[in-house]
Design a binder for these strands. Structure first.
Lengths: 213, 213
DNA sequence: GTCTATACAGGGATAGAC
DNA sequence: GTCTATCCCTGTATAGAC
């Protein structure tokens, strides 16, 4: 949305002048990458601007040239992970299907899951215009994606047709969120079992033989 | 676990001596109450020990006599809300049932939901012994509660008998968590519709006529 | 027992020099 | 573009008044 932290300069939009500010672009990417690493080690509170700057070899004040705020920096990290995940999903299949979606949803780096969770928590607070907007839109697009998966599954006969798809999409996303939280807190919880159960519940009654309690 | 922040002194355990330190007990409760209010206004970062102390009329250092750490104070707020919710649930029915459970799970105060979410996020990070243990145990007990609800529902014929109860309990709790997050971020999402759908999905195939997409 | 005063190390944000 | 210096804030810790 024409944000400032984004539209610094058109990076590769080749005007006549020789490839302009490559250093700034690289620096920006470097900051994002290092932030993820530092966060994995030190967590939310430990990932100070000074710690990030130190890991790169610049002062903390330098970071402000690229990100107006620590919160904006964190949001941008998540934005980029979403972009990467989207691109990766596009490259593989067309209709990812159930298991693929949840596998894609959970970030491999535990630090990133914690970061996402922390930022969502912030967004729930009063007066958080920026973050809240970001996550509201993000969840809307994830629900839409889930809806498409469900619709395609329904057409293949693996999802029953007597339920509202929008509500089912909400529930599916909620299950991924909630189950991943429980798994992260307690290895005893099996996320894939939970997702498999939901898939089974969503399937038409005529499906294959279920397993007993 | 015989924690220190708890066992300051036996409050009303009537020994021979006249009711001992009632002031400290009241003060402690006052701190917990005020913390919730301040958090609702100022959010996680805004709720500094100084801000809480100011709201009460004491210095921030005074708070440390009751809570060793800011994080411990926040955890204690959540602990107490859990206690209250448990007591309230006990007072009403025996087998709460589906809707009652989710209504009970979501805190009316939006600030408290944000606080809980923030603390869960903290617990997900590496090296968070205290918080993580707390939430691991908390989720275990909530899952157990959910399991009882599901079992009782199964005996009444409103939950199908061909699914593992433990996994279903995980999924149920995950749905409550995830849906409440989505609802808080976006009023467009209807949490009760999501829970109703899950209840419908859990019901045996012989149930009443479902509604169309 | 309860609290204030005070000190310390560290945080994010910011202004201006280079 | 990056730095240094600075501001005001934070959680934590200790000393000592009452």
């Amino acid at each position: 949305m024409t944000k400032n932290a984004e539209g610094k300069a058109s990076p590769v939009s080749g005007q006549g002048s020789r490839g302009r500010y490559p250093k700034g672009i690289l620096r920006r990417q470097q900051i994002l990458d290092r932030t993820v690493e530092v966060f994995a080690d030190l967590g939310f509170e430990g990932t100070s601007l000074r710690a990030i700057g130190e890991a790169i070899g610049v002062s903390h004040a330098a970071l402000r040239r690229y990100f107006e705020t620590r919160e904006e920096l964190f949001l941008e990290v998540l934005r980029e992970k979403d972009r990467q995940a989207l691109a990766a999903a596009h490259d593989s299949g067309t209709a990812p299907g159930f298991a693929a979606m949840s596998a894609n949803y959970v970030l491999k780096t535990p630090g990133l899951m914690a970061l996402r969770h922390s930022m969502v928590a912030r967004a729930l607070e009063p007066g958080r215009g920026r973050s809240r907007e970001f996550f509201r839109d993000r969840y809307r697009s994830i629900r839409q994606e889930a809806r498409l998966v469900l619709q395609s599954a329904r057409e293949q006969g693996t999802v029953r047709s007597d339920i509202p798809l929008d509500t089912a999409a909400s529930l599916l996303v909620a299950a991924m969120d909630g189950l991943s939280t429980q798994t992260l807190l307690d290895p005893e919880v099996d996320m894939s079992a939970g997702m498999a159960l939901l898939e089974q519940l969503l399937a038409p009654a005529t499906a294959e033989a279920p397993r007993e309690t």
